[in-house]
Design a protein around this nucleic acid. Sequence first.
DNA 1: TGTTAGCACTCAAACTAAAGGAGTGCTAAC
DNA 2: GTTAGCACTCCTTTAGTTTGAGTGCTAACA
Lengths: 347, 347
Amino acid sequence: MSYEELDPRKMLILKAIIDDYITSKEPVGSRTIAKKYQMGLSSATIRNEMADLEEMGYLSQPHTSAGRIPSEKGYRLYVDKLMTPGVTDLKPTEDELSEICGYMENKIHEMNNIVKAASEIVSRITHYTAIGMASSEKKHTVKALQIIPVDLKKVLVIVVLDNDVIKNQMVKTPDSLSAEELSKLSVICSNMLTGMQADSISLEMINEIVILSGINRDKILPIIDGVLDCIKQCDSAEIYTEGATNLLEHPEFNDVSKAKSLLELINNEEEMAKLLQGCDGAGAKGIVVKIGTENEMLEVSDCSVVTATYSLNGVNLGTIGVIGPTRMDYNKVISALEYVRRRMLPE
Amino acid sequence: MSYEELDPRKMLILKAIIDDYITSKEPVGSRTIAKKYQMGLSSATIRNEMADLEEMGYLSQPHTSAGRIPSEKGYRLYVDKLMTPGVTDLKPTEDELSEICGYMENKIHEMNNIVKAASEIVSRITHYTAIGMASSEKKHTVKALQIIPVDLKKVLVIVVLDNDVIKNQMVKTPDSLSAEELSKLSVICSNMLTGMQADSISLEMINEIVILSGINRDKILPIIDGVLDCIKQCDSAEIYTEGATNLLEHPEFNDVSKAKSLLELINNEEEMAKLLQGCDGAGAKGIVVKIGTENEMLEVSDCSVVTATYSLNGVNLGTIGVIGPTRMDYNKVISALEYVRRRMLPE
DNA sequence: TGTTAGCACTCAAACTAAAGGAGTGCTAAC
DNA sequence: GTTAGCACTCCTTTAGTTTGAGTGCTAACA
């Protein structure tokens, strides 16, 4: 799609309209633009330009005697070219930021939860809903592994991945194993599986573990099962949802049934994983904006989703997505996601 | 409060009114009662009785020409004496039950999550919001403890409590410790702290651990800190919220701002812990019903909260609470909580 | 004395009509 | 190319009207 058709003045007017609509939440008329955004033109002229912009598909009218609202195409152009980029809009929230900073410092060293903490911050800054997904690339490897006796018939399996995600599982053992047997098994498993990827663990390796341990097969199979379960779990992404109720603040969700279906979607981790994964295309600075029906998911077809993927040295750390009405403050959202990147990555 | 003032017929009529209101969600008039609930009386007679019941405070009228709705006092009597107790209302959902049974079987052996699974079931059966709280009695003791090296500068601390709740924490170590030092420290900590209650760990004991280990104090203090953190964490209850969006199904929350404030409350774990703890009074079968303003929390003063505490051999396993409009199907909710008790406790 | 039929009365909700106003499109003049 | 002016549209608000479910009261009845 090329935008050459648009002369600079039209762009300016379109930008003014969208800026205004984003803050006012009301269809904006020609008089408003002529007055508020001093551009030395009368409302009649603006009116003519608006008619042009509508014909080109950048604006639409709810009804004949109403002002104009941006179309998806309008938002698209706005996000791509028009928007005053970067910090500008974040400034008024500087106080919020500092309030939040301290909070983040506390959380940041619980490595497991960086993404959660970051999502919370984004949600708080933007007042939209933030979804965080810790990276779930299959290429993670086992970094540490331990089997701990808990009581006579129970054993705890712990796996730490190379991204410091921790998984554990309690396993009931059919027969009790001695502490020596267990610690031996723990060492063997650790030796065999450390450095392995979840999907590259073969049956042969499991067999080898059983043989090396020299323990009765039936006695330890449940435990090894638990270990594998743990490792597999790591492939299923962790999803953190923050500020879900923020949606209800926006007038486009005044309709309860609409709000309900969206909230239900947001509470559904699988769907959210899909939504965020669908947005992993690089995009400028790793940020992708999907507007309205650009999201293939039907329920969010009147929402926009802005996602940022965070990676360090080529390793994907996670993704944070912001969900809000198509009339969202793209500028603020993108600034927030950038802000979090700056705080997250130097570490 | 005594109910002697009410003759049997008044009770019957009150019960009919409340039954009807619970299902119809509409103020109920005298004609409805006379027709639907065959009791050989004309609407005029019912009308007289209703006027009496209103005077006594069991009913109220939204406006003069509307039917009656139950007052809190009315619900109270209904729950205490009138309600046809037990299974009755659960029958129609027998198919839901069996659908859910299989699901539960899968979850039940993840011991950590019994309460979560149970809450989910309750929420699904009742279509209200269920809040589960795993027991957080301070009297839990440490059952197993282990310190695992993860990489040069990181160590994972794991604590298992006697109720099989697992806590872990990643700790950054200022200086790297050798594997031998760590395993020694792990064994010492385990010996010293196993069987201890969270709040009975003294500074002397920590000192002793440091001395016994023979390692430089500064090197291991962060780790011991992590261990204590872990143990302390166990005192803060785990809260599981299931079916929060179900609230939006009920007409009393058609007002978005009302719904929002309630949803925010429900998402607030501390508040929910307070709410459930406030309801731990024994009550018949461990079930407590708080109607409207009987909840001291302002935001739920037009809701009812039904809580069930589950305990085995005197040990408190957890609490599940159901939140819904005062006009909730108490019968169904109580049945569901009882059902879950039956499935949970034999285990 | 308790029950019931009948009737006047009340009041929210649903519908209708009219007024108000924000905003447009078009035309004609600058 | 820009602008003032004006007729026109159509949503929103307000006020007035109708409808109907439900009540309270009274008088008659068993």
